[in-house]
């Protein structure tokens, strides 16, 4: 399978004595999107952080374009330059303007010329409806705008794949739709994505495959139709029922 961009093979991870990931396997194909769903504490964020090498794994491998990246001999900086990650809490740099947030990594980490980086940054901002806000500081923007800046910042480095960690859970419900639309558009343009989310809209409308994570293991996976229509595993059924009862499905 030559078109697999990101592959996770038997990854395990424990914090101290507590296992958090117990043998995760998944593969994200080029232009594909996988949604990771699961209860709070099931290990979604940990898995994304392990893939971005922000955490060490205990066992297994992560491969990017067919090459193992979790080997100690691989430079994590080099890997992170090829992946984009967006966090739940934006992680914008509050002392920098929107434009400075966007050009920092291209200029410092990738050696792109400042003018070129700024041009790309302005393009992204315009596309995300943020034209004219280049010189604002992040705290002058709404939550939805901040999250769009964060996504633009991750895209400014032209990543091979995008890791999105609950990018809507810090937002007011009425702002979720615009971010969802933006991610759906990215998918339409062929961006490869791995999306951890509590927002079933992502799983339904963006993902090709949905993986249900329970206690650090993927207990069920399938296309959205299967997962939401006829889930087989009792834990998946219970999880979806809870969401249904909470009116979030």
């Amino acid at each position: 399978m030559s078109d697999v961009v990101l592959e996770v093979r038997g990854v395990t991870k424990a914090y101290g004595e507590r296992p958090v990931l117990r043998g995760i396997d998944l593969a994200v194909r080029e232009h594909g999107a996988i949604a990771l769903i699961g209860a709070s504490g099931s290990g979604k964020s940990t898995l994304l952080r392990c893939i971005d090498l922000l955490e060490d794994i205990d066992d297994g491998d992560v491969l990017l374009d067919g090459a193992v990246i979790t080997d100690p001999s691989v430079d994590p900086i080099e890997v992170r330059r090829r992946l984009g990650m967006v966090f739940q809490a934006f992680n914008l740099f509050p002392h920098m303007t929107v434009l400075q947030n966007l050009v920092l990594a291209p200029v410092r980490a990738q050696g792109v010329g400042r003018l070129e980086a700024e041009e790309r940054a302005r393009e992204l901002l315009t596309r995300f409806g943020l034209a004219g806000r280049e010189h604002d500081f992040p705290d002058r923007l709404s939550g939805g705008q901040q999250q769009r800046v964060a996504i633009a910042r991750a895209l400014a480095t032209r990543p091979r794949a995008l890791l999105l960690d609950e990018i809507t859970s810090a937002l007011d419900p009425e702002l979720v739709g615009e971010i969802l639309q933006l991610v759906a558009d990215l998918k339409g343009e062929g961006m490869t994505m791995l999306i951890a989310t509590h927002e079933m809209g992502f799983a339904r409308e963006v993902a090709d495959e949905v993986c249900f994570l329970h206690d650090g293991a993927i207990v069920e996976r399938g296309d959205p139709e299967h997962m939401f229509g006829s889930p087989e595993h009792p834990e998946t059924q219970r999880f979806l029922r809870r969401l249904l009862d909470a009116g979030r499905l």
Binding site: R49, D52, R80, A89, N91, F93, P94, L104, Q110, T157
Partner: peptide
Amino acid sequence: PTQMAGALALGLTRVQAMRHVIVPQ
């Protein structure tokens, strides 16, 4: 700490992250 994570995730080195993100704040 999320500021450091954000900076590292962008592909900055630890030194660059300190210099451009952590120390100025």
